[in-house]
């Protein structure tokens, strides 16, 4: 690694230097990126309109949907898992004691861990990014649609990294953290639906009118992404069978993203505060 890079990292934070320069897993990331790029290129080739007539169909939105689902899966699973193992890994390896006495501030450690997780995700998504930007040329989706999708994805990345970091600070062992991260993901995606079902089951209106009222599920990423997909493709139907859904609070996907960014900020600063207290006195 050239000296200039080391100096830049050094000036930013030794923790960043440590994570980016010294911990070498660059080769694995590069080979991963190349393989993802190859798979996406094959998908794109498969979706590419064969004739001018076929080009009239909305291949761009279909292809962007496919890429976005892949990106969502990567962001949801890997960012939470990566962040949830960051501090817990230091605890488990007993290196946190050395970091505590090293002169690094708790905020510096947290910021560097968050930066590493975010950069890791960006690196994983990097091969798909140019392909996503090609989609508007295939028709069916505009650049603003693509940028909206990617912005929401960025917000969700920050949200899941913050959640993962909070989990990592609260627990000591890697396996506990990864279990809680899985529970966190399951709850955040499906727990609100279960809550709504429980409430609706207890309400008599549901039994007579067959109308479901959604109270909490609007906060689920599943609901948010559903709305986003419906906005870029044919209108998404909220009617299913004989049931009808009413929304207690009807949020657009932009508004949901704003709520997620606020939640991410709260989780991140809570993590810093908890970690400061932890590092000051608690023995790991």
């Amino acid at each position: 690694m050239p000296e200039t890079f080391r100096k830049i990292y050094d000036a930013l934070s030794p923790a960043l230097m440590f994570e980016f320069v010294y911990r070498r897993n660059h080769a694995a990331l590069v080979s991963y990126s190349i393989s993802v790029l190859a798979v996406c290129a094959c998908l794109l080739f498969g979706q590419w309109p064969a004739s001018e007539e076929a080009a009239g169909r909305h291949y761009g939105s279909i292809f962007f949907g496919m890429i976005l689902i892949y990106m969502i899966l990567v962001v949801t699973v890997i960012s939470t898992a990566h962040a949830s193992l960051s501090i817990a890994g230091e605890k488990e390896k007993k290196t946190l004691t050395l970091l505590r006495l090293s002169g690094l501030t708790p905020a510096e450690i947290i910021f560097s861990k968050a930066a590493v997780s975010l950069c890791f995700i960006v690196f994983l998504l990097l091969p798909t990014l140019p392909l996503a930007l090609v989609c508007p040329f295939l028709g069916g989706i505009s650049f603003s649609g693509v940028s909206q999708g990617l912005s929401i994805l960025a917000v969700m990345t920050v949200f899941f990294v913050s959640g993962g970091l909070l989990i990592s600070i609260l627990f000591k062992k890697n396996y506990t953290c990864i279990s809680f991260a899985a529970a966190f993901l399951i709850f955040i995606h499906f727990g609100f639906f279960v809550l709504d079902d429980l409430i609706n089951y207890r309400l008599e209106t549901y039994n007579y009118s067959r109308v479901e009222t959604r109270y909490f599920s609007i906060f689920s990423p599943v609901e948010m992404w559903g709305k986003f997909f419906s906005s870029i493709r044919e209108p998404f139907s909220y009617h299913r069978g004989s049931y009808r859904r009413d929304y207690f609070l009807d949020l657009s996907c932009g508004e949901s993203a704003a709520i997620y960014s606020a939640a991410a900020a709260v989780m991140f600063f809570s993590s810093v505060k908890i970690f400061e207290r932890y590092l000051k006195w608690r023995e790991d």
């Binding site: 050094d10 030794p14 923790a15 230097m17 440590f18 010294y22 911990r23 070498r24 230091e90 390896k93 007993k94 290196t95 004691t97 050395l98 970091l99 090293s102 002169g103 690094l104």
Partner: peptide
């Protein structure tokens, strides 16, 4: 009982902690 960053080289390990101590 202490942990070490086993993937680092000896000089990198010391360089990191020197950087931490500004």
């Amino acid at each position: 009982l202490f942990g070490l960053y086993e993937e680092l080289k000896v000089c990198e390990y010391l360089d990191f902690f020197a950087a931490c101590h500004k």
